[in-house]
């Protein structure tokens, strides 16, 4: 999941880094506004928890295992701003201690897992939650859908970044993207399942821990210090729409090579067609453009399966988890609004 240095070109790294820097700075700004004296220990612990939670392995096949990413989980427990900061710090420490993910790719990794994971995840969850009167069920279903959508959105974004990083003569992008989408729809399914089960477990055992996110947002009773103002609904809907659109785009990205000319034309107009600073040699592998026939068929099958099957599975999962919750919700539904 972590992008290493060398996968993306320096220009793309710089661009994603700038976007992430802006987003994280804004999160820190919002977090500072809300700094009650509890925020810092809570956020630090949340970051450590996401880090430790990623150590729990989930077996998929014999040798392959997945693990939690945690953006949506963090945003559900401590809110989008603290969640984004916590995820950023997790990614930073993973680079600094494990050398997991690159230094220059840190911007892209933060964008995919912290910004999309926490901001986008929060927005999608709130968006879905509104359709359920029963807030407790809404939280679980919302977080399951959000976990799936954020992973797919991150995959779509990666496809775009990867496409901008390398010249098209090098490689046939649509096939790479097919692989990426199929792979990430699996990862997304795992993320949705883990997030959903973990959150419904906490909701069953200690519901107030999840509701407490509301107390971070509301003014502190003792000090009366104002916490951060609630996020405007329109902003949230916009972000949610963006993430969902990106998730849908993930399924279109394998077909992106047919849009190549369009993309090139746009880049040419913007005067950045020489965005490739990677110093690779075009033309070395150009002769090999004949591919075996079955690949094309397999591609559309894989994408359709990933899209339809994955979406169905996520909604079945959300429904099952929602059903598994005890019927009587605690009288705290107001707190879940923000």
């Amino acid at each position: 999941m972590h992008i290493q240095d060398g996968v993306l070109s320096p220009v793309v790294c710089a661009a994603t880094g700038a976007i992430s820097l802006g987003a994280v700075s804004y999160s820190v700004h919002r977090l500072k506004q809300s700094v009650g004296d509890r925020t810092i220990p809570l956020t630090g612990m949340m970051a450590a928890l996401v880090f430790a939670g990623q150590m729990v392995n989930f077996p998929i096949g014999a040798p392959v295992s997945g693990h939690l990413l945690g953006g949506v989980l963090a945003a559900t427990v401590v809110g989008p701003w603290a969640g984004c900061v916590a995820m950023t710090l997790v990614l930073f420490v993973q680079w600094a201690l494990f050398s997991d993910g690159g230094l220059f790719a840190l911007g892209a990794n933060v964008l995919h897992m912290a910004v999309i994971g926490a901001w986008g995840g929060h927005a999608v969850r709130m968006f879905v939650q509104r359709f359920f009167g029963d807030c407790r069920k809404g939280i679980v279903i919302g977080s399951v859908v959000a976990a799936w959508a954020t992973v797919m959105a991150a995959a779509a974004l990666f496809c775009l970044e990867f496409r901008l990083s390398w010249p098209p003569s090098e490689i046939d992008f649509s096939k790479v993207f097919t692989l990426m989408v199929s792979f990430h729809s699996l990862i997304g399914l795992g993320e949705a399942l883990i997030t959903g089960v973990a959150i419904s477990f906490v909701l069953n055992q200690r519901p107030e821990l999840i509701w407490r996110m509301g107390t971070l947002a509301r003014p502190d009773e003792e000090t009366g210090r104002s916490a951060h103002p609630p996020i405007a609904t329109i902003t949230r809907t916009l972000v949610a729409g963006l993430v969902i659109a990106l998730a849908i785009a993930a399924f279109l990205s394998p077909f992106a090579s047919s849009f190549d000319d369009g993309l090139e034309a746009v880049l040419g107009k913007l005067g950045i067609e020489n965005f490739n600073l990677t110093g690779s040699v075009p033309g070395l592998l150009e002769d090999y453009d004949k591919v075996p026939v079955p690949v094309a068929a397999w591609q559309s099958i894989a994408v359709s399966f990933a899209g339809i099957g994955g979406t169905l599975a996520v909604f079945a999962l959300a429904w099952l988890l929602g059903k598994a919750l005890p019927a009587a919700p605690p009288q705290l539904s107001e707190a879940a609004g923000e």
Binding site: D37, R38, P41, L42, G44, M45, M46, A48, L49, A52, G53, V56, N57, F58, P59, L68, L73, V77, L193, I194, G196, V197, A198, I199, F201, V202, Q205, R206, L209
Partner: peptide, 25 residues
């Protein structure tokens, strides 16, 4: 079962971590 217990492990760890955050605070 492995999946469920692993997800419960994460949930339980979350509960313990937040309790610990309270004590630290």
């Amino acid at each position: 079962e492995t999946w469920r217990s692993a997800a419960h492990l994460v949930g339980r760890l979350l509960i313990r971590a937040l309790d610990r955050a309270d004590r630290i605070h």
